[in-house]
């Protein structure tokens, strides 16, 4: 399944307040707990929205994740539409 672990990890941040706090305390430590590809890990650490979308993160997982970061809608859409 494309981006299975990546999506599972982001979903944890979206849904579980205690995991969300851990993520925002240390993105590096949080991401280190998951078996991601180098490309996925890099996209997470750089918060590269376009790359995360291109890697297969579903819009209803990625957009809520970016809302937690207060990313305005035009910026989100520009990012996912730019990456092919």
């Amino acid at each position: 399944m494309s981006a299975y672990t990546l999506q599972k990890m982001i979903r944890e941040v979206n849904l579980r307040p205690e995991r969300r706090a851990e993520f925002f305390a240390s993105r590096e430590a949080f991401v280190a707990g998951y078996d991601l590809t180098d490309e996925e890990r890099d996209a997470m650490l750089r918060f590269d929205i376009g790359k995360l979308y291109a890697l297969g993160v579903h819009g209803l997982i990625l957009r809520p994740f970016t809302l937690l970061h207060k990313v305005p809608e035009p910026d989100y859409l520009a990012a996912i539409r730019a990456e092919r």
Binding site: H58, G59, L60, P64, L77
Partner: peptide, 9 residues
């Protein structure tokens, strides 16, 4: 609607 996807909006 196409929420969070490229057709959003």
């Amino acid at each position: 609607h196409d929420p969070g996807e490229r057709g959003h909006g």
